[in-house]
Design a protein around this nucleic acid. Structure first.
Lengths: 202, 202
DNA sequence: ACCTCTATCTTGACACTGTCCAGATAATAT
DNA sequence: ATATTATCTGGACAGTGTCAAGATAGAGGT
C-alpha cells in the first residue's frame, strides 16, 4: 500500500466495482436478486473473489446501506438551510422522494435484513446514528421557533415524527399503499398533524 | 368431500398441521428460518406433501398472514366498544402489543415478502382491506366526536395516522429502535400529535 | 537479480433452498 | 370391482452462501 487503499492488483479496482455492480443488481431486482455469485459473475471474477473485500454478504449489504445514508445526507442537507416556514415540508418531500428513487437501498438502510436478521457494521451504526441526531437537532430548532409543539421532548417528537415518515415510505415501498398520487397528500396530512397551532396549518 | 373440507386422508389433517407448524417455525426464527423442507420434516411428511395444500411458499405465507389478521381483529375489536376518551389510546397500545407479541407474523402481514416480492392472495387482500376500512370508519367517528381534527378527510387522517403507528412498530420490530421502554412513551407522543386541540392533550 | 511475504483470486466441495416431474398409494365415486 | 381423483413420495435441477485448500502475482527486502 503506497498511497491509496489496496486496489490495482489483479482486477484493478474490485472493491468499487463490486459496490457499484451490487447497487445496480439491487436496483434491478431488489435484495433477493442480489446474490454473491451473480455479483461476482457480473464483475467478471470468480465466485469467492468478493469475499476478500467483503467479509460476508451482510458486510456487503451494510456497505451499500452506508453509501445510501451518505447519498441521503446529501439530499437532505439542502433543505436545512431553507427558511423555517418551508423547510419542514421540503425536508419531508425530499425524504420521501429519496425513498422512492432508491427503493431498494432505502429498504436496506432501514430493513430487518441488516438490523435484525443480520448484524449492522460498526461504521453503519455510526452513520445512521449521526443522521438521526441531525434530525433531532433540527426538531429542537423547530420547537424553539414555535413551529412544533413543545409538549414533548425533542427526542420524542423526533422519534414519533420519523416513525410517521418512515412508516409512510414503507407502506408505499412495500406495496401496501399503491397509488403514488396519494403520497404527497398523505404526507401533507402527516406534517399537518405535527404543527403546533391550527393557525399555521394550511 | 362429504361434510367438512378435504382432510382425513393419509395424514389426517395436514392443512391445519402445516399451518400450525409453520407459524411455530416462523415464531422461532423468522421467515428466513421457515423453509418448506423443514416444515414438511417437522410435520413428518415428505418434501412435496405441503404443495398439495399450498400452491407455493408464497401461498403458505399468505395463509399465515391471513390468520394473523383474524387474530389481530379479535384483539382490536375489544377496544372499539370502549368509551371514546380512552378508546384511542387503548387501540394504539393494543395494536403495538400485538405487533410485539407476534413480531414475525406482523412482519409477514405488512411486509414486502408478500405484498411486493410475492403476490398477496385474493382472500388476504380482502381481509386486510376490511381491517383497514374499520380503521377508517373509526377515525371518522372520532372526527365526528371532535377528538380528531377534521382539517383532512377521514381517509387521509386514517392513512397518515396508521403510517405512524405502523412505522413505529416496524422501527422496533426491525431492530432499529431498541429500547422497549421508550415505545409506550413514543406512542403517547404520536397519539398526542393526532388530537384536535391542546386542551384535550395530556 | 532473487527470494519471501502477503494480498488477491480460483476451484472444489458441502449443506442448504424452492419446486418441476413422474410415479406410488389410498380414499371415493360409479 | 373398477375407475377416478386426492394425496403423498423421491429423484432431479438450478439456485444459494461460504469453508478450505491451492494458484498467482505484485511489493519489499536483500
Amino acid at each position: 500500500m503506497t498511497s491509496n487503499q489496496k486496489q490495482h492488483y489483479h482486477h484493478g479496482d474490485l472493491y468499487k466495482s463490486l459496490l457499484d455492480a451490487a447497487t445496480e443488481l439491487l436496483r434491478e431486482g431488489g435484495v433477493e436478486a442480489l446474490s454473491m455469485r451473480k455479483l461476482a459473475d457480473r464483475v467478471g471474477v470468480s465466485r469467492m473473489a468478493p469475499y476478500h473485500h467483503f467479509k460476508d454478504k451482510n458486510d456487503l449489504l451494510c456497505a451499500i446501506a452506508e453509501q445510501g445514508f451518505r447519498l441521503q445526507e446529501g439530499c437532505l442537507s439542502e433543505c436545512e438551510v431553507l427558511p423555517t416556514a418551508t423547510a419542514l415540508e421540503a425536508y419531508v418531500l425530499t425524504y420521501i422522494r429519496f425513498s422512492q428513487e432508491h427503493v431498494e437501498t432505502y429498504d436496506l438502510m432501514f430493513g430487518r435484513d441488516i438490523w435484525k436478521t443480520g448484524a449492522p457494521t460498526e461504521s453503519l451504526k455510526q452513520v445512521s446514528k449521526v443522521t438521526f441526531k441531525r434530525w433531532v437537532d433540527w426538531i429542537e430548532r423547530l420547537q424553539r421557533e414555535r413551529v412544533l409543539s413543545t409538549d414533548d421532548s425533542a427526542l420524542r417528537v423526533a422519534q414519533s415524527s420519523w416513525a410517521g415518515l418512515h412508516g409512510l415510505c414503507r407502506l408505499f415501498n412495500d406495496g401496501i399503499y399503491l397509488n403514488p398520487e396519494d403520497l404527497e397528500s398523505i404526507a401533507r396530512t402527516l406534517v399537518n398533524s405535527w404543527l403546533e397551532t391550527t393557525s399555521i396549518k394550511r
